[in-house]
Nucleic acid binder design. Structure first.
Lengths: 144, 144
DNA sequence: GAATATTAGTTGAAAATGTAACTAACAAGC
DNA sequence: GCTTGTTAGTTACATTTTCAACTAATATTC
């Protein structure tokens, strides 16, 4: 019979990952929420479109690891904010290309600047080498 | 004017943390959900009570970094599963001590074993030194 | 080329979460 | 000892998320 009072949840990787992820996302969430009234999925959509150009909703699902219903709703929301527009694909009218409007691009640029600063602030306490290692480890875990 | 098309969301710490946290929690979530029908908060409550003994709801909030409404609902849920019981504190009837029932303890022990295995599996690709570094970095980020 | 299957995306209902207002018990000030 | 303030925890309501069913367009099979 195993004796488990020695197992500390605070050493359990999914737990400390969840806590640090929550902690790290809080401050940035404030930003995109307060400035643009965006939700997490909307912010992610904006960044993927801003960085990787026109994509279909399907592409975004795959790249951003989001469920299609979440993406669908985020597209609608960003469309209403006039940040995203849809372009029909004549050869296959099932999908539509998503792209940022000039306004969307402006918001993206603004949030990029904020993200850069925020990232730097989060990593303040880490040496350059540690920063590289940390991100490398996380990417391995995320299979990124 | 900054040019932001060079900013890759996949190097943004909150993003890669969120992705790796999601990825890492998926498998374990399957376990406690399938075996015991528990939610994330319920699992956390179980582990905190199992490891740190009797606590008030307030204590759990602080230790597990959960909002009191979440804890309140998790306590009710685990009480209905007969995993947790409440004991009134005569000196101050505002709080009540939470503790695991024998059944709750059994579930805790079972999930501890599963968690140990799962943790090991997640970290398979990391050398012992990397494992230590990773967890250390994450704890720093989470202010744990 | 009509019937069936697949794919892209949307919608609706149920579950879960977050926020704020609430109750009950205790504490402090006067 | 009664008003006011604080603390522990619950409840109600709005927002988000999840899951499954749905529509519309294309592909496949016979």
């Amino acid at each position: 019979m195993t004796h488990n009072s020695d197992f500390d949840i605070r050493d359990f990787l999914p737990y400390i990952l969840a806590l640090s992820a929550e902690e790290a996302s809080l401050g940035f969430q404030q930003l995109y929420k307060d400035r643009y009234g965006m939700l997490r999925t909307e912010w992610r959509l904006l960044f993927h479109l801003g960085r990787y150009g026109d994509l279909t909703a399907k592409d975004v699902c795959a790249r951003a690891r989001l469920h299609k219903t979440k993406v669908s709703r985020a597209v609608t929301a960003l469309e209403q904010k006039r940040f995203v527009k849809r372009t029909e694909v004549p050869t296959d009218r099932r999908h539509e290309l998503l792209s940022l409007t000039p306004q969307g691009t402006k918001a993206f640029e603004d949030l990029c600047d904020a993200a850069k600063l925020y990232d730097r602030k989060l990593l303040e306490g880490f040496s350059p080498q540690e920063q590289t290692l940390l991100k490398d480890y996380l990417k391995r875990l995320a299979r990124l």
